[in-house]
Nucleic acid binder design. Structure first.
Length: 282
DNA sequence: AAAGCCACCAACCGCAGGGAG
DNA sequence: CCTCCCTGCGGTTGGTGGCTT
């Protein structure tokens, strides 16, 4: 039994948006808002488009405060670090980059950043100027392959280069058959393992399936994240939770307390601690 | 100059989650 | 609870255009 289509496909226009359609959609939303219902919006706005298509167009191209143009090195680092930690959760990653959309980031990752991390030669196309500056892979090959230290009870998994991992797993959060943890590095040693590297992220899996992720580069301001795993599967965080984890300026970091605990969705627990890195001078 | 290749990106598709009834 | 509906997400596709031969 198939799902009912979200719209009348026969009467719906597909393909690239015309400038008039953009104008029509933008003007309608600016005047009336989305009304909380994208399905009926195109009809109200006089557009022969699927509601999902309108939503996508608005979110990705028409809404205000969108950031256009090249990704900065800082943005690269945020994307890479979060990808390493949580996998291809583009919406969460996008939430950390104001003005960027998940689609943007996903495209950027798939077409450019992944190749840069893998150290593949640049495309024959003219690369973005600020990307030309950095010929070295960003951090996976240079840290996990050469400086990372592993202690593991699963030697057959030790030392898998992240580049090999990336080549075969574009979706680390869902690709592993064993305890599935967002981010390939967490999995590299199997259960009861630890992995640390100079890229600012280290992870541990303790007895009982407790996942322990430590982010200590300056980007994060030094935070410790501890997540409980349920049923051998790492559970997701929503964007606010991740924001609490990775934003140095977030309210989570403004107070004096050494540790604060917030309850995550689906019974995942989270500990955000500042004191862990105070002694490291991170 | 033309053809072919391929990187890039906008947009589509299907699925999962969550809320309402 | 259960079902239905809507939204949001992530993977994938197809068109476009730049580059190479």
């Amino acid at each position: 039994m198939g799902r009912a289509p979200c719209c009348d496909k026969a009467n719906v226009k597909k393909g690239p948006w015309a400038p008039e359609e953009d104008k029509q959609l933008k003007e309608y939303i600016e005047k009336h808002g989305t009304g909380g219902n994208w399905i009926t919006l195109p009809q109200k706005a006089g557009l022969r488009r699927c509601g999902k298509s309108c939503r996508l167009r608005w979110l990705n191209y028409l809404r205000p405060n969108l950031k256009l143009g090249d990704f900065s090195d800082d943005e690269d680092r945020v994307i890479c670090s979060l990808f390493a930690a949580i996998g291809s959760r583009w919406s969460i990653i996008a939430a950390q980059l104001p003005g960027r959309t998940d689609n943007d980031i996903k495209n950027y990752w798939n077409t450019k950043l992944k190749k840069k991390l893998l150290g593949l030669p640049p495309s024959h196309r003219k690369p973005h100027h600020h990307h030309q500056q950095q010929q070295q892979p960003l951090f996976f090959p240079s840290t996990l392959e050469t400086t990372a230290s592993f202690s593991s009870s699963a030697p057959d998994l030790e030392g898998i280069p992240i580049s090999s991992y990336l080549l075969s797993h574009s979706t680390p959060a869902s690709a592993f058959p064993l305890p599935q943890i967002p981010g390939g590095r967490v999995m590299l040693g199997g259960p009861q393992q630890s992995c640390s590297s100079s890229d600012g992220i280290s992870t541990q899996i303790c007895n009982g399936g407790r996942e322990h992720i430590v982010l200590d580069n300056s980007l994060y301001g030094g935070l410790e994240i501890e997540k409980m795993l349920l049923g051998g599967r790492s559970l997701g965080c929503n964007s606010e939770e991740i924001k609490a984890i990775v934003c140095p300026s977030s309210d989570y970091l403004d107070g004096k307390d050494g540790a604060r605990r917030g309850l995550l969705t689906r019974s995942t627990s989270l500990v955000v601690r500042e004191d862990h890195f105070d002694s490291r001078g991170a």
